[in-house]
Design a protein around this nucleic acid. Structure first.
Lengths: 207, 207
DNA sequence: ATGCTGACGACAGTCACTGACATCAGGAGG
DNA sequence: CCTCCTGATGTCAGTGACTGTCGTCAGCAT
């Protein structure tokens, strides 16, 4: 469930045309070919015609190079929540954001799948993915609060939304010829509503 | 939201009385005193009267030492789900598990808070925490499936449950003199039900 | 042309983590 | 009591991620 995969594009370096991009491209290729652990930063740098030291000037660590574009995705989610119609409830606004993210994924399914394969294959990368997802939730929660949704409802809706995104994404990746992400998302949201509504019905027997 | 904090106890070493425990205790103390990053594994080992090499024989890495007992917590959650009354719906079973976990946290609030402070202060430790929480979700989902709950409902209920636990835990940590975890949990579950029930009411306007 | 600024290379150093081998405590069997 | 065996530990050497520092060089403004 490497849901973080999103756009790979950015400004260029000053001398070389695009240092960051070259490093990122070299990295994902090498990670995919020989595995994350068996790839050294020196290899990536050499592949991109740069030095190891320069790699670490562009990326905080060896993992971060795979999470390029995460900032953009976070902004996208927050914006979608903010731009949801005023009449929409918290969970509707979150749903809108999830569908916006889904659209980006579906723009380039092959790259998303490649990245997912690399990230899923390594525990350290899965950890980093989770942090990014938590950042998504945090951004969504912030946007909800801007809409006047109080805590803990905002945080709860955001966390739940990300949980739904993860679940739907995993399902989508799992069946390449299955329905599209939008459809799966809607289905998951409906299932969840149902479960919780059931629970609401007979209240007060929690522990 | 370092929800992973749970029991610290285990078998003893053969020569020295309790190598694992001594290492864990030294580690958390040093991490709390001088920070995680400024503490070297050699320091921890020396403090415990052992060598660096031995530290890595007991813990997979420098972070893992703070996540002692996570396995027990995972089993606790799974068992609570399994032992929920047959009449309980998926979300009720999950709620029961969350309350079981809450009970363990409340057994020793000081230690939980100390650990939370250490983990929250460091990004790498927060990453590890998220992985453990994901493992919790996975265990809960498995237990739900054993109860006959189909996918994606099982995964969804599990993820949502962990999201609720995180939210409630954060709130609990945030106000030391506030209501107890059980109470906050119940409140969060109610809020979430409400939000999703509202959304269920006017269906079909997702994105 | 000259100086400034920011990106890069070169180099040395720290530390997390690993593999290989020696060693030593204690229990099982004589 | 002695001996073998097993498992936990110490020792040593090595890899690789990451950092600090300094020199250098391209492009820009003056």
């Amino acid at each position: 469930m490497t849901v973080t995969a999103i756009a790979y594009h950015r400004a260029m370096g000053r001398w070389e045309p695009n240092a960051r991009g070259r490093l990122a491209q070299a990295a994902i290729r090498l990670y995919a070919e020989q595995g994350f652990e068996r790839t050294t930063v020196a290899q990536i740098a050499r592949q991109a015609g740069l030095t190891e030291r320069t790699f670490f000037r562009h990326f905080a660590d060896k993992r971060e190079v795979l999470f390029y574009g995460t900032d953009l995705a976070r902004e996208l989610l927050a914006r979608a929540v903010a731009e949801a119609p005023a009449s929409a409830g918290p969970m509707d606004a979150v749903a809108a954001a999830l569908h916006a993210a889904a659209a980006v994924f579906q723009e380039n399914p092959e790259r998303v799948r490649l990245r997912d394969a690399v990230v899923s294959a390594n525990a350290e990368l899965r950890e980093r993915e989770l942090i990014k997802l938590a950042a998504f939730a945090s951004a969504i929660a912030g946007a909800l609060r801007e809409r006047g949704v109080p805590e803990p409802a905002a945080g709860l809706a955001a966390e739940t939304g990300v949980a739904v995104l993860k679940t739907a994404f995993t399902r989508w990746i799992g069946e390449p010829d299955g329905p599209d992400l939008d459809h799966i998302l809607r289905e998951c949201l409906r299932d969840l509503s149902g479960m919780l509504a059931d629970r609401l019905a007979d209240q007060g027997s929690p522990g």
